[in-house]
């Protein structure tokens, strides 16, 4: 059974590398946001597999915490772009009024 876990964790690591590459080369902001999100998901999976590989499934707690927290960062990014867009529109309007 162990080699299955080992193979899976290698596959997940390779996927993590792909996400890092996408995060580094971009080119758009959305590529990077998706890269971070994907990297977070892969980290959750990686921790889950590793905790079985090392025979300590009680450490799944940690993977659970990661899964819960990942979501918040992405929502913050969403809010950031939303408020930046509105602020830019408002500034453009003000410029036009002058």
């Amino acid at each position: 059974m162990e080699w299955v876990y080992f193979g899976t964790s290698i596959a997940i690591l390779v996927t993590m590398v792909l996400a890092v590459v996408r995060g580094l080369i971009g080119p758009t902001i959305f590529d990077r946001v998706l890269a971070v999100n994907m990297f977070g998901t892969k980290t959750v999976l990686f921790l889950a597999v590793i905790s079985f590989l090392s025979g300590r499934p009680d450490f799944l707690d940690l993977a659970l915490a990661y899964a819960l927290i990942n979501f918040i960062g992405v929502l913050a990014v969403l809010l950031f772009f939303q408020s930046r867009g509105v602020r830019r529109d408002a500034e453009a309007e003000r410029e036009a009024d002058k």
Partner: peptide, 21 residues
């Protein structure tokens, strides 16, 4: 700076996975 924030998120996740290992 936005890219830097996104990459530092990845940095933390890698570090956390490493601590876990």
């Amino acid at each position: 700076l936005f890219t830097a924030v996104m990459l530092s998120g990845i940095f933390s996740l890698i570090m956390a996975a490493n601590f876990f290992i």
